[in-house]
Amino acid sequence: MSDTAPKTVGGILTDNLWHSNPIFMQVLGICSALAVTNLLTNTFIMSIGVIFTTMMSNFTVSIIKGLIPRKVRMMVQVLIIAFYVIIVDIVLRAYMPDIHEALGPYVGLIITNCIIMGRAEAFAQSNGPGLSLWDGITSASGYMGVLLVIAFFREILAFGSLFGFRIMPNWFEPWIIMAMPPSAFFFLGVIIWIGKTIMNHEEAAA
């Protein structure tokens, strides 16, 4: 994991996207993975929100880390994260009301996404602002990647469409269960399965 690996730009990238991918290796932030992945558009916007929040909170924590007293470290991190989440919420509500409506309470719930807090605590607390920013972008992108894969299968099966464009023929019978949150468990399980299998092969080969 990133604690022992050298903290290079490339190392952080491959770590966050693959070797310690927040979703399928660390199994973090899956609550939102279940909730928003029935449509690609929602997933995409939600992921952008998470990328923005993780990136900026990492950056901010890293800048002021020297000033934060140890006792209130966590509290300040939560405050910073909440700040950026509310910014996302305000922007969506003002300029993308339809998406805001569709995402409902889940934008506010970005704050409970363990990935963001985890990166602030595990990375930004002990690294410079530049690397922290990069770490935030990449780990949230790792999250986005997995979510988009899940959303791809769910939207195509549940609605026969991708990003809202119908691509399946008319006779296609939608799988209603795929529109419901629990179905994300099936795909999440399969993705973890595939990911672990590939990784085990890599380790065996190394």
Partner: peptide, 10 residues
């Protein structure tokens, strides 16, 4: 149950 919920209409 899986197909029952997934394909309620058919």
């Amino acid at each position: 149950l899986f197909i029952w919920i997934a394909f309620a209409a058919p």
